[in-house]
Design a protein around this nucleic acid. Structure first.
Lengths: 195, 195
DNA sequence: TTTATTATAGCACGACCGTTCGTATTTGGC
DNA sequence: GCCAAATACGAACGGTCGTGCTATAATAAA
């Protein structure tokens, strides 16, 4: 492996941490270079623009998400157990950034009203994630774990809602019951669709 | 009324619109002055720092929220009808900013990991809003509209989750069914706690 | 080891940031 | 209409932003 992509990895790793704390927009090249310990122009050379850096950070986070949340869940039985594993993995993953929260959430909100490549990319990644949940739900349907008339998109929406709310309750509000409420709500959603 | 607070009102009005689109942090004094049509230093004189401007924008938005969401709902009967009215008013209110979404959401996410006055203020305002929902739920309890063993904090959490998810589904994902899913989820929550 | 390529640093650029200051203009009370 | 107070302006400050350019240092290929 060439040295180039190795430092790139280092940069993205630091960038992801900063993003999780300050958001994708506040991620500045100068500050990032300082954190990594290299010159601004040296770092800049790896990405040809700030926008490309942002998108690479998003992809890096997505890859991270897949490895930590999706892949391990595939070891569980198809359907609901797999979905539940995803939830638990996500909770652990989003809490694993000591200084910040889910690296996507800030990007979601920052760019939801700003057309452009970054917004498109954020949107794509969120759709992919929600798609994973919906797929698990469809499989649950095939396996007769949930009622056949369940509205899968609606269930995915509710699951997603639970994740975001948990994030805000635990991070902004600092509610010590947020873990309990997250689990209770997820259980409630599952109970409402189970056969 | 003195001219000073009249222009201040104008400034805050424009600032709120910009905030709803770009977030509190991206709100720059120069850009804001240009939008309002006055000099940067002239505008700056009304607020003694950027942080004070940000907090005033938050308070202005909160006042706006109270007037458009809470007050009108008070005309409805106590308890659940009032809560439902709040939801509908909020949906209309958060969609009333043509260019952006709920002016709070961006601030919530931007500042959830950054200690300081802005964060404290955002937190306070969110707690106040959620408190309004919880109060309506407690009244619903007194009026025997919901079961006496309902966990009010949990119900407030779920209602809040629905609001945030609706926002993201409609704004970022552009899902045309988000209205339907929002209503369906709210109804589901209410049904689950009703007597 | 020499060579070609890649990676990094240093410097400078124009633009914008929040903020301060001195000065002009406008306003409201008398 | 006068005068003090409130309001607005223009210019400038030290910083930081993203982004080029050029030259040097480290690496990979020959």
């Amino acid at each position: 492996m060439s040295k180039g992509i190795k430092t790139k990895e280092t940069i993205l790793n630091t960038a992801l941490q900063l993003t999780s704390k300050f958001g994708l927009e506040s991620l500045s090249i100068g500050e990032l270079a300082k954190s990594v310990g290299m010159s601004k122009s040296g770092l800049f050379g790896h990405f040809k623009s700030k926008e490309k850096l942002q998108i690479m950070v998003l992809d890096y986070a997505a890859e991270n998400f897949t490895q930590q949340v999706i892949i391990p869940a595939l070891k569980k039985p198809r359907g609901l157990p797999r979905l539940e594993a995803m939830m638990m993995n996500w909770k652990k993953w989003s809490g694993s950034y000591m200084t910040g929260g889910c690296p996507f959430l800030s990007s979601i909100v920052e760019y939801d009203d700003r057309p452009g490549n970054v917004r498109d990319h954020v949107k794509l990644l969120q759709e992919t994630m929600i798609g994973s949940f919906e797929r698990a739900l469809r499989v649950s349907n095939e396996e007769n774990q949930i009622r056949s008339n369940v509205d899968i998109k609606q269930a995915g929406y509710e699951i997603y809602a639970n994740m975001i709310a948990y994030h805000i309750y635990s991070r902004l509000l600092g509610d010590k019951n947020s873990d309990k409420m997250f689990t209770a709500n997820f259980d409630k959603i599952i109970t409402s669709i189970k056969v």
